[in-house]
Write a protein that binds this DNA or RNA. Sequence first.
DNA 1: CCCATGACTAATT
DNA 2: AAATTAGCCATGG
Length: 106
Amino acid sequence: MDGNFQEEVLKLVKQIPKGKLMTYGEIAKELTGSVRAARAVGQAVAANPYPIVVPCHRVVRSDGDIGGYSSGVEKKIRLLSAEGVEIKGRKVLNFEQTLFLFDFKK
DNA sequence: CCCATGACTAATT
DNA sequence: AAATTAGCCATGG
């Protein structure tokens, strides 16, 4: 396995600060330069070998939906709630505000 | 190389 | 605002 793509994805996800969120699309944009690889990003974190070490629960959809989670959406919601992220049903409240934009400037 | 799959998105209905 | 549709991309068989 190459795993290079997934490796890059995990690297970025690991930098998401607690209480903040990141979308699959933004990660894809940082990696491939386009939001179109968002789906591939999802596939990458889906195979996340290090739950907790890599806070993949802080990655959500671009439309504010919490998206999915290997261990179940409920688990994801609970983890986020514990970090101070308010969730209503499947949607994130104050989405735009809770979102973490890469600081990495380049 | 071709085909199916999915933790996605944007546009349309 | 919720449901559908079509498009895109990295994997794995």
